[in-house]
Design a protein around this nucleic acid. Structure first.
Lengths: 243, 243
DNA sequence: TCATGGGATTTAGCATACAGTCGCCGAGAT
DNA sequence: ATCTCGGCGACTGTATGCTAAATCCCATGA
């Protein structure tokens, strides 16, 4: 295998000239597969593509104005992240979440989020706590305005920031994976849970501010656990509400 | 999008005939990309491909006797699972794990494995416990034979089975993801840890047998935590042992 | 009326071809 | 001698063509 791997031309002898203004690693042309991935994932989340539906490569490619190649690569990633099932020789089908799976997903999320909160409480600096409160404010505003979309966004932002504070990137990746799918299942009941959830958030942030990792983890656990409960409650009540 | 999705031909009127012996969804011809994925992952794990090395699609394709297409699809999945980094317009590079990342990976693994043990203790039937002991035996044999390969295999098998007993498939997927990479980093120190690890396993299984979920989780936590310690110990001692 | 078999259609899987981009390297200028 | 610029080679990103398999539909027979 070729290994160019950044062969420095003059070994350790060129400190004088700094690259002009190149702090960012320079934006690379985003491959089509990324855009395709995002579009399809979005279509799945918002219900445009329904569980069990067959994704035909040709149609997607035509619809998006690209060739099949980037579509296929996007499908690979969608499969790896659990959005679709890839049946050999048959193609891609939107994953159909079972009752058990949804529950397991929520249980796993609880575990991961609680850990992230615990770690966040250990590491958070005052400035970071400050930012947490500002995020909390944004959510409060969304709640008083009854702005669904903003509420979901604020929720994501707050959780994402707490995860970031945990300082564990591996954990962060897993949570992103799990949360995105949770949001998919959870979507229909976002409304009912939105308001009360924010009160719980405040308490959680206070625990983080107080560096009380044990309490923070526990609060987060209860917080996500309640989400799980409301999912199940919804489940039983609206079992056959939709055809 | 076409939605065949199993259009029943005679609506709700054919209960008598059961599909004969079709419990398994029928073995489909495994796509090349799977084989390619396995091969490359294996090459990374066993060190044939070194961190930072540039994976050239053409070379891989030629080497494996396939075209670039299945290789690219395999690379997508390798990227999604954290084995390689994909830099736009530059290609695929074997991921270089940092010190922090390894630690975070091990910490996350501890969290996940402990949970799986806790759940396993809640669910395990006597027959399943029986199987755990048989797995433990296989490992004991490998230890007394000082058979490295068998030890690693037995270790994987035991942990995998405990995960399975947890009944949480989402958790199982995440653990598979994390464990595989842990094994990659952990590979060099498998020997030093092998023997003592099995004693810990016995105690763990006894806890599961006793349905003591709290103790099982705690034992697993300590078990994986010790692995983490030995990783760090090795780290400090052999920092510059290899060029 | 139902089961069975064959053929046409659809579609995934794989291979190949083309084009754009990046990085290297040498020639010429300063 | 050092720096700059333009050409060249290599490799990725994307598109297209081909093949084989699976499904569906319809005709045929019990």
């Amino acid at each position: 295998m070729t290994t160019p791997a950044r062969r420095r031309r003059s070994s350790a002898s060129t400190p004088p000239r700094e690259p002009r203004t190149l702090r960012q690693p320079l934006e690379r042309p985003a491959p089509l597969r990324h855009a395709v991935f995002d579009v399809i994932a979005e279509m799945i989340i918002n219900g445009e593509l329904k569980p069990g539906e067959h994704l035909v490569e040709n149609e997607l490619a035509a619809q998006l104005g690209v060739s099949r190649q980037p579509v296929r690569e996007a499908l690979q990633r969608l499969h790896a992240e659990g959005w679709i099932d890839l049946r050999p020789a048959l193609g891609a089908f939107v994953h159909t979440p079972t009752e058990d799976e949804a529950d397991q997903l929520l249980a796993t999320r609880t575990l991961l989020e609680a850990e992230s909160a615990r770690l966040a409480a250990k590491n958070a600096t005052p400035e970071q706590v400050e930012h947490l409160y500002s995020l909390l404010n944004e959510g409060d505003i969304a709640v008083t305005d009854d702005d669904q979309k903003a509420m979901v966004a604020a929720n994501s932002a707050l959780h994402a920031y707490i995860v970031k504070l945990s300082g564990n990137k591996v954990l962060a990746e897993l949570i992103e994976l799990v949360d995105r799918r949770v949001r998919w299942y959870y979507w229909p009941i976002a409304r009912s849970r939105g308001a009360e959830a924010w009160l719980e958030h405040r308490e959680l942030i206070e625990a983080i501010e107080a560096r009380n990792s044990r309490k923070a983890g526990e609060l987060m656990r209860k917080h996500t656990e309640r989400t799980r409960d409301s999912y199940h409650a919804r489940d039983r009540s609206g079992e056959n509400a939709q055809g």
